[in-house]
Amino acid sequence: MIEAVLFDFGGVILSSPFEAFADYEAEIGLPPDTIRKINSTNPDTNAWAQFERREVGPEEFSRLFEEEASALGHELNAQRILEGLHGTVRPSMVEALNNCASKFKTAMLTNNITPMREQDLDEDVQTVVEIFDILVESSIEGCRKPEERFYEIACERLNVEPERCVFLDDLGINLKPARAMGMTTIKVVEPEKAIKELYEILGFPAD
């Protein structure tokens, strides 16, 4: 029996930053998915991983990330990439979150570079953040998805077993450890399809 629904934020509740990355790559003539390739090289220790755990600040991140890009033969401006991290709210996902919050425990599981409480959030984003029972943020916890400890923290704070959780994320690498722990997982590629799958799992009536 499901007791909790866990949501990624960027790429699930908000539009994906990968869209902004693709626009920047096209603007400066980089091959498609260059930024994702840099991020997937040494994913546990690279600049992005360190930044999401708050082990380095923005200036050090930019230096390290640009060095990593250079090592792969690319030149880019890391600051421009950071500017693309702010997505827009997906109304259908917010509706799904509200529906879940009326019957289940909810949590946001997000790899971020600055805690939500320190961000100057738009009003619509702040409203969404306040729906969740708990927030689990890499910038606070010192660990990040896909590290197993990150998911354990969410379960401990919600007082639920992994087997009683559904987790939605847009990245398969983040879903794999959650599924191994016993969670039911949903990969969000097309939001409407993901919501339909979620409602089927939870036993919500179809529209």
Rank of each mutant, 00 (worst) to 15 (best):
R36V: 14
R36H: 08
K37Y: 02
K37P: 00
K37N: 09
N39V: 04
N39L: 14
S40K: 12
S40I: 01
P43H: 07
P43G: 06
D44W: 08
D44C: 00
T45D: 12
T45L: 04
A47D: 06
W48I: 02
W48R: 12
A49Q: 06
A49P: 08
F51K: 10
F51N: 07
E52L: 02
R54S: 15
R54W: 03
E55T: 07
E55V: 10
G57P: 10
E59Q: 13
E60N: 05
E60G: 01
E60I: 12
F61V: 03
F61S: 03
S62I: 11
R63F: 08
L64C: 01
E66S: 09
E66H: 09
E66V: 08
E66F: 05
E66A: 10
E67L: 13
A69L: 05
A69R: 08
A71L: 12
G73D: 05
H74A: 12
E75A: 14
Q79F: 13
R80G: 14
L82P: 01
L82C: 04
E83I: 01
E83G: 15
G87L: 02
T88I: 01
T88K: 09
V89T: 02
M93L: 05
M93I: 01
E95Y: 02
E95V: 13
E95W: 04
A96Q: 10
L97G: 03
L97I: 04
N98Y: 04
C100N: 02
C100T: 05
C100H: 01
A101R: 15
K103Q: 12
F104H: 00
T106G: 07
A107E: 08
M108D: 02
M108N: 11
L109H: 04
T110K: 06
N111G: 06
N112Y: 06
N112I: 12
T114P: 01
T114M: 13
P115L: 11
M116V: 15
R117M: 10
E118L: 15
E118M: 14
Q119M: 15
Q119R: 15
L121R: 10
E123T: 09
E123V: 06
V125I: 15
V125S: 02
V125G: 03
T127R: 13
V128H: 00
V129D: 00
V129N: 00
I131L: 09
I131Q: 13
F132C: 06
L135S: 09
L135A: 11
